[in-house]
């Protein structure tokens, strides 16, 4: 009896695996697909960074502005292309439909990464960074909680211009550090590179067709821009 029950349980497990993808009804519970993926897939993914050769090949294949996303915590990287402009905001999308929105190089939103940054209040901070001026600015981030309620995180940021740095050969800018603290959240600091002419950091970093954005600051900021539960 015990053996029979065990055999049936094994049969059940096998069937769940076999049935996970059966059907043409998109509305069926995705939980089975997720269970299938966690049992039988996902383990063979590698997290190796994108090589410079791959970046070069990508740049050669498109005229669109390109950014390189890196989330240190997840050890993952992706290449994103500019897919839309709305005022000063630029939306970059990856081939698998993840998106990041930048305003003059500052991340104002992410989508599809999990724990997405929904929007920010960045005017005051961006003004100081772009002017390469020292000062204090208020900065607000909005996230969705797992309950789907908007959570507003308010920071006070101290902006400090630092030394001149070379982004790529022939392209340089001033590093401007924004150290932000909050009464309820962990502190974080971003470093932006603002070009010598006072132009926006994105343009500085993107100067020259073969040296389009390798946006270290964007990648660093992205870690802070996705909320980890």
């Amino acid at each position: 009896m015990k053996l029979k029950t065990t055999c049936r349980a094994a049969l059940m497990a096998g069937l769940i695996a076999a049935l996970a993808g059966c059907g043409n009804d998109d509305r069926r519970d995705p939980i089975y697909d997720a269970a299938y993926a966690s049992l039988f897939g996902g383990g063979d993914e590698d997290n190796k960074p994108i090589s410079d050769q791959e970046i070069a090949a990508t740049l050669a294949a498109t005229d669109l502005p390109v950014i390189r996303l890196r989330i240190e915590e997840r050890k993952s990287e992706a290449v994103a292309f500019e897919i839309e402009r709305n005022g000063e905001h630029r939306t970059y999308g990856t081939a698998s439909r993840q998106a990041i929105v930048l305003r003059h190089g500052m991340i104002t939103a992410t989508r599809g990464l999990g724990g997405d940054l929904m929007s920010v209040e960045e005017d005051a901070l961006l003004r100081l960074v772009r002017a390469r001026s020292a000062g204090q600015a208020r900065f607000v981030q909005r996230f969705l909680t797992p309950e789907d309620v908007t959570e507003v995180l308010a920071y006070s940021c101290t902006v400090t211009p630092q030394q001149q740095v070379e982004v790529t050969p022939g392209v340089s800018g001033m590093a401007v550090r924004a150290a932000c603290s909050s009464e309820t959240e962990p502190d974080f600091a971003d470093v932006y590179i603002v070009d010598a002419g006072g132009r926006d950091p994105r343009r500085a970093a993107m100067a020259g067709r073969d040296h389009r954005l390798r946006h270290a600051a964007a990648a660093a900021a992205l870690i802070n821009a996705t909320r980890h539960a």
Binding site: G42, E45, D46, N47, K48, P49, I50, S51, E54, T58, L69, I71, R74, K75, S76, E77, A78, V79, T94, A95, S96, Q98, L113, G114
Partner: peptide
């Protein structure tokens, strides 16, 4: 590699 990286983002 790009696909793998993006899958890792999701993972």
């Amino acid at each position: 590699a790009r696909r793998a990286g993006i899958a890792a983002l999701l993972a």
